[in-house]
């Protein structure tokens, strides 16, 4: 049998053997026995030298193609075996993807905190800075400087917790609103312009019910400067409401009364629960009261250190719990201070 014939036979036999192989060990053996240094192909190639010189190039070329063919076949078989092995591994490794995952323990921020942050963010973009002021206040700051001298009938609008003091000392109370903060922010800035928001806890002497808490948060906002008008107040509040409740939300401004603003206004948005047709939450009015506001009363501006003839300003106050209650449909304000994780983990 000629060398070429032997080669053809070897190639045929090798490919046939390869087709039978199903594991990597056998494949390695196959590789050694056909393609290794001592393998069948190498052994056969030793016969090349015995060929006549003119037959050598053709036989040599045939050897090369045979080696290439086997090597390629090996590569394919190797890949195939790897695929199969992986396939088996996958099958063994399969999971029920509907089983619950491993949850990293991540806590939640209180819904009031989340609402406050949103308020900070929106108003921050409009130039409002966050300031703080005390919760335990004097009568002077909570009422008098806000244009409510003693015996002012408007004091009835705020049922007040008083703090025991020794006779002769200044009257102390728990602030009934964040409005005293206006005075601090103005005094810290006057006569320069100010835009400030003052968040914090307030307290009212009120029976605690699903709707009323003795403790709650408020965010006071003020802007004082030259040429600040009621139109600016409207523009600011509408922009705020659109950021919070969506572009195009329907709003309503209606005259109201606060001793520290003049004119005063109540700002409503269309009830998003019923779309304005009237429901229990909006007390069938179609509107939700969101905040109270107004142009800062000249007396308050003066108490803040400004000349009301030269500058003007507006103030507004809102309740983050109420806003969160509306947003999430929370039916009882008492949950906010319960510390109950069944509540806290919903937001």
């Amino acid at each position: 049998m000629s060398l070429i014939d032997q080669l053809n036979q070897l190639e045929h036999e090798a490919l046939a053997a390869l087709a039978q192989i199903t594991d990597l060990t056998a494949l390695t053996e196959w590789k050694n026995s056909y393609l290794g240094k001592q393998g069948a192909l190498s052994r056969l190639s030793r016969g090349l030298g015995a060929l006549p010189a003119d037959a050598r190039p053709a036989a040599g070329a045939r050897f090369n193609t045979a080696r290439a063919t086997l090597e390629q076949a090996l590569e394919r078989a190797e890949a195939q075996l790897k695929r199969m092995a992986r396939q088996h591994a996958f099958e063994a490794d399969q999971v029920d993807v509907t089983l619950p995952g491993r949850a990293p323990a991540v806590g939640r921020l209180h819904p009031t905190t989340q609402m406050l942050r949103q308020i900070y963010a929106i108003l921050g973009e409009m130039g409002f800075q966050v300031w703080e002021s005390p919760e335990v206040e004097t009568d002077e700051f909570n009422f008098q400087l806000l244009n409510m001298p003693p015996d002012h009938p408007a004091r009835d609008m705020w049922d007040t917790f008083y703090v025991e003091t020794t006779p002769g000392d200044a009257t102390l109370l728990l602030r009934t609103h964040t409005s005293p903060g206006q005075i601090y922010a103005m005094r810290a800035n006057a006569p320069k312009p100010v835009r400030a928001i003052l968040p914090g806890k307030c307290y009212r002497y009120e029976q605690v019910t699903a709707r009323h808490e003795m403790q709650f948060y408020q965010v006071e906002g003020i802007a004082v400067g030259e040429q600040i008008s009621f139109a600016d107040l409207k523009g600011t509040l509408v922009a705020f409401a659109e950021r919070l409740y969506g572009k195009g939300v329907k709003t309503r401004f209606r005259p109201s009364y606060f001793p520290f603003t003049e004119p005063s206004v109540e700002f409503d948005i269309e009830c998003f629960l019923c779309g304005g047709t009237g429901c229990r939450v909006c007390k069938h009015s179609g509107w939700l009261e969101i905040l109270g506001a107004g142009m800062i009363h000249p007396t308050v501006l003066r108490n803040g250190g400004y000349d009301p003839e030269k500058v003007s300003g507006f103030a507004f106050g809102m309740g983050p719990e109420r806003m969160a209650m509306l947003r999430y449909g929370i039916d009882d304000i008492r949950w906010f201070f319960s510390g109950d994780e069944r509540f806290l983990q919903q937001f």
Binding site: Q129, P193, V194, A223, A231, K234, G235
Partner: peptide
């Protein structure tokens, strides 16, 4: 009518950064 008053955004100086 409060609703007829136009909307505008404050044009005065911003407060000092803080």
């Amino acid at each position: 009518g409060y609703d007829r008053i136009p909307l505008s955004l404050m044009a005065d100086a911003l407060p000092e950064p803080r």
